[in-house]
């Protein structure tokens, strides 16, 4: 079969207007179904003619999955809310700034206008071996091309590898982990996941990035008020100022008491097949002032257990430096 790209293969399109119907349609479609949210990840797969679902379930018409709902304990954001809406939302900006900042760092304005929060956190990895349609482990094959001795793996992982060395590309994912957000999944049973548990590594299932299995739909993201108005830090290192995914990014929330870090949540992305929450670093900084020595210790602790592939040793120092900077951001 000869290689062909750039034309979307035919599919049937269904456009449900309620979560219930969407889940129902997904169940019917099973493995042959595909959920279309913002479409930025989807159309890439389709245009490369690698993913060829028979049925595409466009969830863009489900109003209950859009927008913000203020709740006593926090704010609920529909998974289909666009990243622009997230970045511009007054309460998100004022109370959960790290999420707004992360959303602002996604790709480009047009992508943010169309891309959704749910899509951003649920998107597939951009490992170029995998995305080229090569039959790697993640694609159901029996090899990881990206970790071969001479492979091109500058943008691959330094942590959490298990046969697959891809990284999670999401900008908002680490921010949501820093905010201790909860993911609401409907299938049709409704489940709640802590943000960091929503993402899974290849050792759990090498073909998926998140807990979502066929038939599961991420409907809302709930951001609890607990971390509202904390001191936030977000930084994303990338090659170009636009479009590019992170090389390494960090998102952090600090609750301060004077110059002492009372509590912290720190997550990095671009370093593992899933966004990594740095619990050990959080424990280290808790109850301390963000002195230079603490910044350095946090950085060093963060990179414990990292292991570079041929081309991505730099990520270790970049990750260390970003964690340092995150802690430095609350220095007196």
């Amino acid at each position: 079969m000869a290689n062909m790209k750039d034309m979307i293969p035919a599919f049937d399109l269904v456009q449900p207007t309620t979560v219930e119907d969407a889940v129902d349609l997904m169940k019917d479609a099973g493995d042959e179904g595909w959920v279309l949210a913002g479409g930025l990840d989807t159309f890439d797969w389709f245009k490369d003619r690698i993913k060829r679902p028979r049925v595409v379930i466009d969830i863009g018409g489900i109003e209950e999955m859009r927008g913000f709902r203020d709740e006593a304990g926090g704010i609920e954001i529909g998974a289909m809310t666009t990243l622009t809406e997230v970045a511009n939302h007054a309460r998100v900006r004022s109370e959960f700034g790290v999420l707004a900042t992360a959303a602002e760092h996604v790709a480009t304005p047009q992508i943010r206008n169309q891309g959704t929060l749910g899509g951003n956190i649920t998107q597939d990895t951009r490992c170029w071996y995998y995305r080229s349609g090569w039959p790697c482990y993640r694609a159901g094959g029996n090899v990881c091309y990206a970790s071969a001795p001479l492979a091109m793996n500058r943008e691959h992982c330094i942590l959490g590898r298990s046969r697959c060395v891809a990284v999670n590309p999401s900008d908002t994912a680490p921010a949501l982990i820093a905010l201790d957000a909860k993911m609401v999944v409907q299938s049709p049973r409704r489940r709640l996941y802590d943000a960091e548990d929503y993402f899974i590594g290849p050792s759990v299932d090498i073909t998926r990035m998140t807990v979502l299995e066929p038939g599961d739909l991420l409907t809302q993201v709930f951001v609890p008020a607990f971390w509202a108005n904390s001191n936030f830090y977000f930084e994303k290192v990338r090659d170009r100022g636009s479009w590019d995914f992170q090389l390494v990014s960090v998102a952090a929330a600090f609750r301060m008491s004077g110059s002492t870090i009372e509590d912290a949540r720190i997550a990095v992305n671009g370093v593992a097949p899933y966004p990594v929450r740095l619990d050990a670093v959080e424990r280290l900084v808790r109850g301390e002032a963000a002195s230079e020595s603490l910044q350095n210790a946090a950085g060093e602790l963060a990179i414990q257990g990292t292991r570079a592939l041929r081309h991505n040793d730099y990520k270790i120092v970049m990750m260390r430096n970003l964690v340092r900077r995150a802690v430095r951001s609350v220095a007196a």
Binding site: V237, D239, H311, N312, D313, Y314, K315, V317, M318
Partner: peptide, 14 residues
């Protein structure tokens, strides 16, 4: 950035 930061940190060229 990877090459620059690696050079500044004295890491070997990959």
């Amino acid at each position: 950035p990877d090459l620059i930061v690696a050079e500044l940190e004295g890491r070997p060229l990959p």
